[in-house]
């Protein structure tokens, strides 16, 4: 879709109250920090006039320049120079296209904004055209599944979650998982993530555990979140946020992997009960999957190594080490 060259916009000065500054159908800005733009306009004025569409006497809708209009309003401007497009001469797709290229030329879209672009395009053009032409423009793979995911991201996630995603506080993977959590429980899950300030890895783990446990127990996540064990951890007065986060994840891991956690604890106890000399450490392979356990000896010189090996040799109870689920090990 090309905007015809002869449909040149008219230049004009528009009273800001005549501009509808709600994020209209062409807006592709989300989660931005307006400070730098405000500072720029304050210093040198408006360099690029926004594009508006409407009838002669307004009200005007923003086609491109949503952030500039918002900044001008913050700075208490009363009117601004704009480029005006006639409704009768520009289709919705023309407007969307104009905004898209205006943005692409100057900045990178965040993930929510990509979802906004794609969501808006789906109601105007064919899926094939979006895949062929617009996904590469947004640096996305031309996969139908990717397209559907971004559209869901924009349409289904709550504003606060989208804001966190746009700010990089949530990863795309976590956003995908939150979509799978479903709208009923999503708020509760997100609140906990925020409350405990879980890092990206912890967020992924937390949601994964919640989905799994809810499926295993056949209990909705929302009900599970209301359980006393959750509250007990969150209300612990002697723990700070990172400690609560750790305790919560440990609690969920114990529920999700009872046999594994039991085995890890048994092994830890057995290893500790050996009373190995300082600087000698035994550890289990990850998840006990490999049959090989590991011995580490820290030493300063050969003499110390020799004495540590000697101490180890005489150590009683070494035969207790081994697969913790096996009797006699």
């Amino acid at each position: 879709m090309e905007i015809e060259k002869n449909l040149k916009p008219r230049q004009g000065v528009v009273d800001l109250p005549d501009i509808d500054d709600s994020p209209g159908p062409y807006c592709m800005s989300f989660g931005f920090e307006p400070e730098s733009l405000i500072a720029s306009i304050k210093n040198v004025g408006l360099i690029n006039p926004p594009y508006l569409i409407g009838n002669e006497d307004g009200p005007y809708m923003i086609v491109a320049g949503y952030r500039r209009i918002r900044a001008l309003k913050v700075l208490h401007y009363e009117r601004a120079p704009c480029l005006l497009l006639r409704k009768s001469q520009f289709s919705s797709l023309d407007c969307l296209h104009l905004n898209l290229h205006d943005n692409l030329a100057t900045r990178r879209f965040n993930e929510v904004e990509k979802g906004m672009v794609l969501s808006r395009l789906t109601s105007l053009i064919s899926e094939d055209e979006i895949l062929d032409r617009y996904m590469p423009l947004l640096a996305l793979p031309s996969h139908k599944e990717t397209l559907l995911f971004y559209v869901r991201l924009e349409r289904e996630l709550e504003k606060e979650i989208k804001f966190s995603l746009a700010q990089g506080q949530l990863s795309l993977q976590v956003a995908r998982m939150l979509l799978e959590v479903g709208s009923e429980a999503r708020g509760g899950v997100f609140d906990l993530i925020k409350k405990l300030k879980l890092n990206i890895n912890q967020q992924r783990q937390f949601i994964d555990y919640m989905i799994d446990i809810s499926n295993i127990k056949r209990t909705p996540i929302l009900d599970f979140l209301k359980e006393k064990s959750f509250k007990d951890i969150l209300e612990k007065k002697d723990m700070n946020k990172p400690q609560k986060a750790k305790a919560l994840l440990h609690f969920l891991r114990t529920l999700r992997y009872p046999t594994l956690v039991r085995a890890e604890e048994t092994f830890r106890k057995r290893a500790a009960s050996l009373g190995l000399p300082e600087g000698i450490k035994v550890s289990a392979p990850p998840y006990f999957e490999s049959p090989l356990y590991r011995l580490e000896i820290f030493f300063r010189d050969g003499k110390e190594l020799g004495s540590k090996l000697e101490a180890l040799k005489g150590k009683e109870g070494l035969e207790a080490l081994g697969n913790p689920w096996e009797e006699g090990a």
Partner: peptide, 27 residues
């Protein structure tokens, strides 16, 4: 999860195997 929301096949204790695949915990 998406195609078979009622499934029980994911309920077990799966850990990362030596080949990167998820497998039941060894015991």
């Amino acid at each position: 999860r998406r195609r078979h929301p009622q499934t029980c096949v994911l309920d077990g204790e799966f850990v990362t195997g030596l080949d990167g695949k998820m497998r039941y915990f060894k015991p």
